[in-house]
Lab assay of single mutants.
Amino acid sequence: QIFVKTLTGKTITLEVEPSDTIENVKAKIQDKEGIPPDQQRLIFAGKQLEDGRTLSDYNIQKESTLHLVL
């Protein structure tokens, strides 16, 4: 699982696999929060994550925290 922290300070927990794409993660966030993926920007280690890449591409491991910017 990974954590996604929103600007409001809320933390969302997501069940993911390293092979999941960023697009996939955004879809999971939409399921939980109702935020359309095209409004979501995910930041990890100061980098904006691209939809077509996977979590493992960015070396995002379990218990990692991503930041969600709208």
Results as ranks from 00 to 15, higher is better:
13 T>D: 04
63 E>A: 10
15 E>D: 14
11 T>C: 15
14 L>Q: 01
69 V>H: 12
33 E>G: 05
34 G>D: 05
51 D>L: 06
24 N>A: 14
69 V>Q: 10
1 Q>T: 14
51 D>P: 07
66 L>G: 02
63 E>K: 08
46 G>L: 04
65 T>Y: 08
59 N>H: 09
47 K>D: 06
8 T>E: 13
31 D>K: 12
40 Q>I: 12
25 V>D: 00
41 R>K: 09
15 E>W: 14
61 Q>K: 12
5 K>C: 15
37 P>W: 12
69 V>I: 12
42 L>H: 00
56 S>T: 08
67 H>Q: 11
27 A>E: 10
53 R>M: 15
14 L>E: 00
31 D>P: 02
42 L>S: 00
40 Q>H: 04
46 G>S: 05
69 V>P: 01
53 R>S: 07
7 L>N: 14
68 L>R: 00
7 L>Y: 15
33 E>K: 04
36 P>D: 07
21 T>K: 09
55 L>Y: 01
24 N>R: 13
16 V>D: 00
48 Q>P: 11
40 Q>G: 03
41 R>I: 14
15 E>N: 13
60 I>M: 04
34 G>C: 07
66 L>H: 01
30 Q>V: 04
39 Q>R: 12
45 A>E: 12
60 I>N: 01
27 A>Q: 13
11 T>N: 06
65 T>C: 09
48 Q>L: 14
9 G>C: 08
59 N>D: 09
14 L>H: 00
16 V>E: 00
8 T>S: 13
26 K>Y: 03
14 L>T: 02
2 I>K: 01
6 T>H: 06
31 D>E: 13
69 V>R: 09
64 S>P: 03
65 T>E: 07
55 L>G: 00
43 I>Y: 15
64 S>V: 07
64 S>I: 05
42 L>N: 00
41 R>Y: 11
65 T>Q: 06
47 K>Q: 15
34 G>T: 03
22 I>E: 00
36 P>I: 05
70 L>M: 11
48 Q>S: 11
60 I>H: 01
48 Q>E: 14
54 T>Y: 07
8 T>V: 08
35 I>N: 03
61 Q>V: 13
53 R>A: 08
54 T>N: 05
62 K>V: 13
30 Q>M: 13
27 A>K: 15
44 F>P: 00
50 E>V: 08
54 T>M: 10
58 Y>H: 03
36 P>Y: 05
28 K>Q: 10
36 P>G: 05
4 V>A: 03
43 I>L: 14
25 V>Q: 00
36 P>H: 11
51 D>V: 06
39 Q>V: 10
65 T>F: 07
13 T>E: 07
20 D>E: 10
54 T>P: 05
69 V>W: 10
13 T>R: 07
61 Q>C: 09
65 T>H: 15
13 T>W: 07
33 E>Q: 07
38 D>G: 12
4 V>H: 01
66 L>Q: 01
3 F>P: 01
61 Q>G: 12
7 L>C: 15
40 Q>S: 04
16 V>I: 10
10 K>W: 10
67 H>K: 07
32 K>S: 10
44 F>L: 05
38 D>C: 15
23 E>T: 09
16 V>P: 02
69 V>D: 06
56 S>F: 11
2 I>H: 01
37 P>T: 14
9 G>N: 06
2 I>P: 00
12 I>C: 03
5 K>D: 04
55 L>S: 01
52 G>T: 10
46 G>N: 07
53 R>H: 14
14 L>G: 00
39 Q>H: 09
28 K>E: 03
12 I>S: 02
29 I>M: 03
68 L>A: 02
42 L>G: 00
64 S>D: 12
3 F>I: 06
52 G>V: 07
41 R>W: 08
44 F>C: 04
54 T>R: 12
8 T>Y: 12
53 R>K: 14
43 I>T: 10
30 Q>S: 11
42 L>Q: 00
25 V>P: 00
32 K>M: 11
21 T>L: 11
53 R>I: 06
18 P>W: 13
9 G>H: 05
48 Q>H: 12
53 R>E: 04
11 T>E: 06
7 L>M: 15
3 F>L: 06
66 L>R: 01
27 A>I: 14
45 A>N: 15
60 I>R: 01
49 L>V: 04
10 K>R: 12
56 S>P: 03
24 N>C: 15
14 L>N: 00
5 K>V: 15
18 P>K: 06
36 P>N: 07
32 K>G: 04
43 I>M: 14
18 P>M: 13
55 L>H: 00
42 L>E: 00
28 K>I: 06
18 P>N: 07
68 L>I: 05
6 T>R: 07
33 E>L: 14
12 I>Y: 06
13 T>C: 11
4 V>P: 00
4 V>S: 01
27 A>P: 00
32 K>D: 03
5 K>N: 06
28 K>F: 06
50 E>F: 07
32 K>I: 13
21 T>A: 04
13 T>M: 11
12 I>F: 13
54 T>S: 08
17 E>P: 03
20 D>G: 03
47 K>T: 12
62 K>S: 15
58 Y>V: 02
53 R>C: 12
27 A>D: 08
43 I>F: 15
12 I>L: 11
38 D>M: 10
39 Q>A: 08
37 P>Y: 13
18 P>C: 11
16 V>T: 05
37 P>I: 14
49 L>C: 05
25 V>C: 05
12 I>Q: 02
48 Q>Y: 13
23 E>H: 11
48 Q>W: 12
58 Y>K: 01
58 Y>D: 02
25 V>E: 00
26 K>Q: 02
4 V>F: 03
1 Q>K: 13
9 G>M: 04
11 T>M: 12
31 D>A: 14
64 S>E: 08
11 T>Q: 07
30 Q>C: 15
7 L>K: 10
57 D>C: 04
15 E>R: 07
56 S>I: 09
44 F>Q: 02
14 L>M: 04
70 L>N: 09
35 I>R: 03
16 V>C: 11
4 V>E: 01
8 T>L: 10
17 E>F: 11
15 E>F: 14
58 Y>G: 01
56 S>R: 11
64 S>C: 09
49 L>R: 00
45 A>S: 09
1 Q>C: 13
20 D>S: 07
44 F>S: 03
20 D>N: 08
36 P>Q: 07
25 V>N: 00
20 D>P: 01
59 N>R: 07
26 K>D: 00
36 P>R: 09
4 V>Q: 00
35 I>K: 02
44 F>V: 03
39 Q>D: 07
20 D>Q: 04
41 R>C: 15
45 A>G: 13
35 I>P: 04
50 E>Q: 09
39 Q>S: 09
8 T>K: 11
70 L>F: 10
70 L>Q: 09
3 F>T: 06
62 K>N: 15
31 D>R: 12
22 I>M: 04
22 I>N: 01
52 G>Q: 11
4 V>R: 00
60 I>D: 01
25 V>R: 00
8 T>C: 15
33 E>C: 15
34 G>Y: 04
56 S>L: 11
24 N>I: 14
54 T>L: 10
28 K>H: 05
14 L>R: 00
42 L>P: 00
18 P>S: 10
30 Q>L: 10
17 E>H: 11
27 A>R: 14
32 K>Q: 11
17 E>C: 13
59 N>Q: 09
16 V>F: 15
45 A>P: 01
68 L>Y: 02
66 L>S: 01
27 A>W: 14
12 I>N: 01
52 G>A: 12
55 L>V: 08
17 E>G: 08
27 A>L: 13
22 I>T: 04
19 S>F: 11
50 E>K: 07
44 F>A: 03
18 P>R: 05
32 K>P: 02
9 G>F: 04
